[in-house]
Design a binder for these strands. Structure first.
Lengths: 258, 258
DNA sequence: CGTGATTTTGACGACACTCAAATAAAGTGG
DNA sequence: CCACTTTATTTGAGTGTCGTCAAAATCACG
């Protein structure tokens, strides 16, 4: 439970009052910070600022130079690219423990990022982060592994976009988000979907109407139920897994947004 | 020119007689090896074996444990995943200087890889490679940057798969491959496509028939010409760029396959 | 030159998109 | 707290792009 938050926002996964002391921050156990040793963490702490960002706020815009690296503590961020005519592709969702920002040749944001919920995040200057990785090669290596895992996740996204139909896409997404964000919660078959249908659509390469229709189709087949439109319960996980074409769910990793 | 090779295989981009001496290997200038310092390279050389692989040979299969890391010197490799019912998604093509293999949590191949042409590659044991990165933090950092660039490339692939139509997809692919493999060749508007139409289709999330139809459509619009079915010349680059929805081509980077 | 593989072209159908309206949910001010 | 407005989601009807199936044409290779 999360006693500090008001209502049933189960997508706020982290513990009480994080931000001041890493030892009580739940991202210490799971996310990026769990990859770090005590000395590395101590170094970072001195350079980090904790930011509270309300929902639907733009964190960064594609093609602008990047100044900061964020580590999400609480809440959900969506990453997206837009084509000149307005078509959008959501390239990922970030949750607690995930990283926004990194080291690319271009040193510019490649995606835009917008908070889906209220977000609590640690921020560090890009140059400081770069220096930090130089000073702690083990951390750099851990980050390289995370980046490699992110590449695998993006491969999975590619086969989803290129070779799955609407039902398979939605089934896969629900299983994936459940796996990332609710696997060890008190209601393991629940998924909170704080984002809008159009965000899901843009992640899945569908129109928002098709997403909506697909939700009702899955409900009719009794594979899921939606007590509220942003809360889904997986009623028949084996069938969903079969529909999604999964043989095993991917290893959990620290997601990276750029 | 490449006097050592027999015919007009312009997709063999590297120089003469690579493999024995890194100083005369053209991948020294462009690809993964260009990221390394002299001492790092010297360390690697002792552990590398040079492998010649004929075309259409499987290099690795998804879900098998990975034993080696390859650096492609010459030729083209395709990376793909298959769904249980046979649907395929090609997740990328590797050319000279690109890497196959890396450090993921799972330590298993995430894709299968097959040579499209005859391939010359340097191979190093996974454990040796891991040790190498630990011994040369600068190399690890360079690889992290490459991995980050690969993540950006995969984001671009996602928007291609999710939000572009057939013509836009093909235009984008032709520009991208031209940019990666022919930008500084003697015929800058040529693209060699050694892979089959079905491979292009599986990369673009289309059927091979649609790819073929789209080729003829682009030819009718005089945007391209195909003197041979595996050689394309870009006749109207601005129009192709506009069709693909590019404002700028991505930075060239060392591609990474897993 | 002949055989098999690959690519192209054609006809038809289906899945997902577009446009449009109705319903539901969330936010706002009295 | 409720009425009202705004935003988001669902549902419906019709269309179009791309997929499937099938056959012809072209290419590669022995």
């Amino acid at each position: 439970m999360t006693p500090t938050t008001t209502s049933g926002d189960a997508y706020c996964l982290t513990g009480p009052h994080p931000g001041q002391d890493c030892r009580v921050c739940s991202s210490r156990q799971n996310g990026f910070c769990s990859l770090l040793g005590g000395d590395a963490l101590a170094r970072l702490r001195g350079q980090v600022t904790v930011e509270t960002v309300p929902r639907r706020r733009i964190l960064c815009r594609q093609d602008e130079p990047f100044d900061k690296v964020y580590v999400v503590q609480r809440g959900v961020v969506k990453l997206y690219q837009v084509l000149s005519d307005g078509r959008r592709q959501v390239t990922g969702f970030l949750g607690p423990g995930d990283i926004l920002g990194g080291l690319s040749q271009r040193r510019h944001w490649h995606c835009s990022a917008e908070t889906v919920t209220d977000v609590l995040a640690c921020a560090i200057g890009r140059a400081d982060f770069s220096d930090f990785l130089r000073a702690f090669p083990d951390a750099a290596l851990s980050l390289l592994i995370a980046a490699t895992d992110e590449i695998e996740a993006l491969h999975d996204h590619a086969i989803l976009l290129g070779r799955r139909n609407a039902q398979e896409k939605l089934a896969a997404l629900l299983l994936l988000l459940n796996h990332r964000w609710s696997a060890d919660s008190d209601s393991p078959d629940q998924v909170q979907l704080p984002m809008r249908r159009s965000d899901l659509a843009d992640y899945l390469g569908l129109s928002l109407e098709t997403v909506s229709r697909t939700f009702t189709a899955l409900k009719r087949q009794r594979l899921i139920a939606t007590p509220r439109s942003h809360a889904v319960s997986l009623r028949n996980r084996p069938a969903l897994i079969h529909m999604a074409g999964f043989d095993e769910l991917p290893v959990r990793h620290v997601a990276i947004g750029l």
